[in-house]
């Protein structure tokens, strides 16, 4: 088990390294390079850039220096927001994005999980039909109403027509400002989690070992406890992907609701061709997703004894 964890951590580190290298050399492939901007650079920034990127050195040494500054947690100056370093921007933006993401993930897991569990029960009763219908409806909405359609609609309804929630802005994370962004972020994930939970719980309930429990007359409460433990595994392994999806969604949500998070800086940076900022974002985001996947991986092995052993035996 510890061996497996160690191997996983090393693999994650290797993955992060590849991502950093990929983004670094991709930037260098850009026609004209990132630094022959049409606009003249501020001498101070130009100086900083040279310090970080060592443009006079051969490419591989530039990369080593870039790694070194990354290791020291230095992403360099922003090319777009002239007065800030990328670090300063992140220090402000990262907590906001992570808070949004964590809240949306919790909502998705709670609502989606509950919905899926209710929708999994098969039978002819009204309750079962309603449950299955709710999951179908959620899945359909999740597919046909992407975040960038839902968000303006909610702004229109709650912000402009009924005037019960602010249309946008962050205001240091006031709860009223968080409701619409979190709902927008969570909605597609609710659909996916509900569907996953429904199918896996249905599959598990149809498995022979559940039939064994029934054959021994064990109470439904006990049977569901067994089934849920197994049914949660596919949702757990989806979490890694969910984290990536939430980060993608945060790009849209932060843009639409005007929230100063990572996603918005990323888009603004991409439009303003702010290479340092975009590269920094890619590295940070990849690190987040990789770390999250690692946690999920370890949790999975902890929940499913078969996994832990198949690797170490």
């Amino acid at each position: 088990m510890p061996q497996r964890a160690l191997a996983r951590i090393l693999a994650a580190a290797a993955t992060l390294f590849v991502v950093i290298a990929l983004s670094f050399f991709l930037m260098r492939l850009a026609p004209g390079g990132p630094f022959d901007s049409e606009r003249p650079l501020d001498p101070k920034i130009a100086e900083n850039l040279r310090r970080i990127y060592r443009l006079d050195l051969p490419l591989w040494r530039q990369f080593l220096f870039y790694l070194q500054s990354l290791a020291q947690g230095d992403f360099g100056p922003s090319l777009h927001w002239r007065d800030f370093s990328v670090n300063e921007l992140f220090a402000h933006a990262l907590p906001i994005s992570m808070r949004l993401g964590a809240e949306a993930l919790s909502v998705a897991l709670l609502v989606g999980g509950a919905l899926g569990a209710i929708g999994a029960s098969t039978g002819a009763g009204l309750r079962q039909k309603l449950g299955a219908f709710a999951v179908d409806a959620a899945a359909l909405i999740g597919v046909i109403l992407p975040a960038f359609v839902i968000a303006p609609l909610m702004q229109l309804l709650f912000g402009l027509t009924w005037r019960i929630l602010p249309v946008g802005g962050w205001e240091d994370g006031a709860w009223r400002n968080q409701i619409l962004p979190v709902a927008t972020l969570a909605l597609p994930q609710i659909a996916i989690v509900a569907r996953l939970m429904q199918t896996s719980l249905r599959d598990v309930l149809a498995e022979p070992h559940i039939r064994t429990l029934r054959a021994f007359g064990l109470p439904p409460r006990h049977i569901y406890a067994h089934a849920l433990r197994a049914a949660i595994l596919p949702t757990l392994s989806y979490l890694g992907l969910a984290a990536a999806n939430l980060l993608t969604g945060s790009v849209i949500v932060e843009t639409i609701f005007g929230i100063p998070g990572m996603g918005r800086y990323f888009v603004d940076g991409a439009i303003g061709r702010d290479y340092t900022l975009v590269m920094g974002t890619v590295v940070v985001v990849a690190a987040l997703v990789i770390a999250f996947n690692l946690l999920v991986d370890l949790a999975y092995a902890w929940l499913d004894p078969r996994i832990a052993e198949s690797a170490s035996r």
Partner: peptide, 24 residues
């Protein structure tokens, strides 16, 4: 498959945007 996993770890939208940004 290790390579695929590595690319997986990158939220794809960031990758696409970087590509679009770099290559116009």
């Amino acid at each position: 498959m290790r390579i695929v996993e590595i690319i997986y770890a990158l939220p794809f939208i960031f990758f696409v945007i970087v590509l679009v940004m770099v290559f116009g």
